[in-house]
Structure formats: structure tokens, C-alpha cells
Design a protein around this nucleic acid. Structure first.
Lengths: 185, 185
DNA sequence: CAGCATACGATACGAACCGTCTCGCAACCC
DNA sequence: GGGTTGCGAGACGGTTCGTATCGTATGCTG
């Protein structure tokens, strides 16, 4: 659909806030009414463009052929590089802004950023291989990692090269307290 | 300043997207020009209202008088309860949307949600008391925790009662690979 | 093929805000 | 008491909103 491509083009060019139905209609060579006929709001239009895959580039699927820690660090590095890329930074901020208006966008964004099947599968494989305890709450781990990415997008804390390793190491328990300390609970 | 209070009132009532300078001016009994004279944009106005403390309620300072794990779980429970509260949910979404337009809002929100001095101090005390190894990257831990909160706000993953414990336990390394055998029962 | 329904492009419309500008008016400073 | 300054008020041209109304093109039905 020409409308979705126009939406994607204008979204990438100027962001969600500057996106107007009139502009999309003009760019797509379409009457405004045609857009209002099929989509109830701007955010639904963006959500559909995102789901149709015309908005975000395919996430590069990491290789996942090393140890759990190495694979996760590599994945985190790739995602942070993507997120820090100036070209995508604005787009991601805009997507987050759009998420607050339409939960479907948030869910899709979360999938694209990391809750996607590959990462979960790698963690599950980690459990099978004994790299993670069977009790490891994979969903919570993914949430923490995706969250760290979101914080990075909205608040941009200063971070150096080692940040990816640190985040993964925290989540993998490298900084676990001594057992007796933890068990004093 | 009456303008900041009007901003806060309208922000809470209808959110960032529906906030208009004209509306604020009318509500505050003020000329539009007066607002434009002092604030360059809507988001700066919101940022100042947030910083002035007229926008968000004071975060209840947790007691922090137990073990590290107990204190963190209690803190996480309090924050998640706040975030899940329907009344604040919309406001927080709006604040996140505003963050994408103004980094100062994002930083302030991050502080309010958890990177605030109290939490960092508790973690540092954990290091002193030997509850955490000296090498523990406190900033990264805080980022992960705040991130989990953000994910919750924008994507609202399903979560049950135990989520707070799980998140804290992951970050404290309870699911560390090294502890695999010990943790199995 | 005739008749008709439907989706379309285009465009007009009133409403809401935008950001700028220009008024008087009051308070304050020498 | 003259001059300055910041203010409330609101006029102004623009933009976009969401709705309504055209005439047209396409394709189905009989």
C-alpha cells in the first residue's frame, strides 16, 4: 500500500510528532478520507507500517554460536550500536513516543529490540546446556535487557565501551554476592 | 508561578499530546506571549514543572532497613505498584513521550524512578557491608532496574506477583551459572 | 449490456492551535 | 512625572484536524 510507504518515508524523515495525515495523503497521492476510512488514528497507521515491516530495518540476526556470555555480549553490542546510531536514534525516540499512544507499537518495538524469538531461544538453549540454572526466569532477564536499551534511548546515560559486558555480566550473575551474604535474608 | 501549576493541572488531566499553550494561558489567566517570552517550547515548560516538583508526587522513600535483597524487593514492589496504578499510568506514558522531545525530562524522570540518590546509596552500602562484591557496577544495575520499569510502562508485559523478586534476584546474581548446582533442590 | 453500488481523489468547511505582533495598561525606576 | 518594562488581551495568517460532499472510475449483478 502506497499509504504505508508514504507513512514510513515521512516518519523516517521527520518523526512521529511532525507526521500529519494531510502530508501522508499528499505524499501518497491519495485523498485524506481514504486514510480516515481505514485507520482510526495516526498511531494505528504507524503501527501497521511497523508490523508490515516497511518502517524498521530487519534486525541483524546475531550468529549465536559461542558461549552464552559471548553470544549475549555480542547481541547487546549490536543492539546498542544500532540504538546509538544517530540515524536511528530519532526514529527510535519517535517510536517510543508513538508507543505511549498505541500499545501495539510498544509490543512490536519490544519484539524488534530483543524479546524476539532468537534471544529467548538462545537463553533456553543456555538452560539446556547447563549454562543457566533451570529456574532462571528468562522473561525477566529479557525484560531487564530490553529495559536497559530503552533507558539508553530516552535518557542516554553516559556509557563507555564496556557497558555491554557489564550489563550482561550483571544479568548472568557475575556480581553475585557471596552465598552466605545473600542467604542472610 | 501560576503558569507552572496550570501546566501541571492540564498535563495531569489530559496528557502531553493534548497540552496546548493557549490552554495553559487561558487556565492560568495569562497572555500567550508571557509564556512564549519565558519558555521556548511546550516540553521546556513541562520539564520545569517537573523539576519544580508540581508535577509528580514525591516518591515515597523506602525504609531501607533490611538486607540488600529485602530492601531492593521492597523498593521494586513500591515502584511497580506506583507504575501500575491506573491514575499514574497515563501520566508516566505522557512523561515518556515528553522525554523524547526533551532530554531533561528523561533525566529527571529517570532520577524520580530510581536512579535517585537513595537507591544508589543503598547499593553502595551493600558493597561496604559485603553484600555485593566491590567490583559490582552499580550504575549498570540501576540502569537495568529502571529499564525494567520503563518496559513495564510502554509495553506492559504480563507480570505476576513474583516479578519484583525475580527482577531483583536476576540482578543480584541468584541465577548465576556458578550457583547452578547449589540452587537446585 | 444496463444498472447500481462502492471506493476513490479532490476539495471545501469549521474548529483548534500555532507562533508572531501590536495594542493599552499598570508597576516601577530614576 | 517622564520613561521603561513586563503584562493581559487578542488580532492575524498558517497549518492540521476530522467531517462532509462532490464527481468519477471500477467492478459486480442481473
Amino acid at each position: 500500500m502506497a499509504i504505508l510507504h508514504a507513512t514510513a518515508r515521512l516518519f523516517l524523515a521527520r518523526g512521529f510528532a511532525q507526521l500529519s495525515i494531510e502530508g501522508i495523503a499528499a505524499d501518497a497521492g491519495v485523498g485524506k478520507q481514504t486514510i480516515y476510512r481505514w485507520w482510526p488514528s495516526k498511531s494505528d497507521l504507524v503501527a501497521e507500517a511497523l508490523i508490515a515491516g516497511v518502517l524498521m530495518p530487519e534486525q541483524v540476526a546475531p550468529r549465536f554460536d559461542g558461549t552464552l556470555r559471548a553470544d549475549l555480549v555480542q547481541w547487546m553490542r549490536a543492539v546498542l550500536a544500532f540504538v546509538d546510531h544517530p540515524e536511528y536514534d530519532e526514529m527510535l525516540k519517535s517510536l517510543i513516543a508513538a508507543s505511549t499512544a498505541n500499545p501495539a507499537i510498544g509490543e512490536r518495538l519490544r519484539e524488534n529490540l530483543g524479546a524476539d524469538a532468537d534471544l529467548v531461544r538462545r537463553l533456553e538453549k543456555g538452560v539446556e546446556d547447563g549454562e543457566l540454572p533451570a529456574a532462571a526466569p528468562i522473561a525477566s532477564i529479557v525484560e531487564l535487557l530490553v529495559g536497559a536499551i530503552l533507558v539508553r534511548i530516552v535518557a542516554r546515560p553516559e556509557a563507555d565501551d564496556g557497558e555491554s559486558e557489564r550489563l550482561i555480566d550483571v544479568v548472568l550473575g557475575r556480581y553475585a554476592p557471596e552465598h552466605d551474604a545473600l542467604d542472610r535474608t
